Measured scan of single mutants.
Amino acid sequence: MTSCHIAEEHIQKVAIFGGTHGNELTGVFLVKHWLENGAEIQRTGLEVKPFITNPRAVKKCTRYIDCDLNRIFDLENLGKKMSEDLPYEVRRAQEINHLFGPKDSEDSYDIIFDLHNTTSNMGCTLILEDSRNNFLIQMFHYIKTSLAPLPCYVYLIEHPSLKYATTRSIAKYPVGIEVGPQPQGVLRADILDQMRKMIKHALDFIHHFNEGKEFPPCAIEVYKIIEKVDYPRDENGEIAAIIHPNLQDQDWKPLHPGDPMFLTLDGKTIPLGGDCTVYPVFVNEAAYYEKKEAFAKTTKLTLNAKSIRCCLH
């Protein structure tokens, strides 16, 4: 018999989150649709729960009410004593943790798909938090293969000092899905179709896995975050240069030392320094102006996964 890495157990509980950011409308629209008619997301033997994560922000069509829901799922915020004085999103995070967690427990949901849009030209993107997770690498390989020839990129946010504390991190297997470009507060049919297909293929993978299909060893190309880059700023902290036209919409493309990065209003080009080629992502993302992030630098690498098969009882 072929030796293989056996994944822990079959997958039982899956959640699909929309509206973690209330103005990213593809996930909101799909989740609302699936709450009314969820036939397309159901798979035999699998509990799939669509869920609106930040209903107040969705109602106002804004990213958040008090603070970013997708950055506060750490033990400090989840452990705060519940009171009306807490920011709305912290209270909501505790409610979500109660419903789908608790985080880092045996009772937490197996998989959470968190649906997002970006204003950046990132196409279909899967966000991975753990480079050693054979199950998710296999799932992402399946999704990428199923979507081809449509490109699907994998963004690895594993980093020693950049801690995200994402909404989906309460699950055993957290999956971020990011599709763009799409303006905030807008629905685009092409973007919706791409996100819908990503979810379909992900659920198909889980179904095949649960039925005992063995997935042979595989490898995927990923883009691992190195650092986030702020806009150049003046002495008052105001933005002093904008994304250069040569960099705009060039997510995932190589940016070499000396290539144009920013452009000042008086026409001066600010190039990339250093001696390493990087791959920019979230270029000129609207939501990241407040976070002082013009783009993120990534490096390209390959992740390998062992063969996996479900432990059938």
Rank of each mutant, 00 (worst) to 15 (best):
N77I: 08
D130I: 02
G267D: 07
L312Y: 12
L78F: 12
R168Q: 13
L150N: 07
C124T: 06
L25V: 14
Y88Q: 07
R132Y: 11
T44M: 07
C311S: 08
Y88M: 08
I72V: 10
V281M: 10
E8D: 10
C4M: 13
T145W: 07
L301P: 01
F113N: 02
E221K: 04
K103S: 08
V48S: 04
P280I: 02
F262R: 01
C311V: 14
N121E: 03
D114C: 05
K292C: 08
G212P: 00
P260F: 04
N117K: 00
F135H: 01
Y279L: 01
R233D: 04
Y88A: 07
H33V: 04
E290P: 15
K197E: 10
H201A: 12
E8W: 14
S131V: 07
L128N: 01
E235N: 14
I52Y: 04
D190I: 05
Y173A: 13
P217C: 06
I143G: 00
Y64P: 05
K163A: 10
W252S: 03
A15I: 02
D130L: 02
F205H: 00
F17N: 02
I270N: 02
T20A: 04
D275F: 06
Y279W: 11
M82T: 12
G180H: 02
I226K: 15
V229E: 07
K197C: 12
L147W: 02
L303H: 00
L75Q: 11
E285I: 03
P55N: 12
A165H: 11
D266S: 14
K200R: 11
P102G: 13
N133S: 12
A286R: 12
E9W: 09
E158D: 09
E9F: 15
C218P: 01
S108E: 13
I270V: 14
H21M: 07
M195W: 02
I72K: 11
D275R: 10
F100N: 05
A202C: 05
R92T: 12
P149Q: 04
D204Q: 01
D259R: 04
K80R: 13
C67M: 14
I137H: 00
L247Q: 01
R309S: 11
K228D: 08
I127A: 06
I225T: 09
T125M: 07
D193L: 07
L78W: 14
G180A: 01
C124F: 01
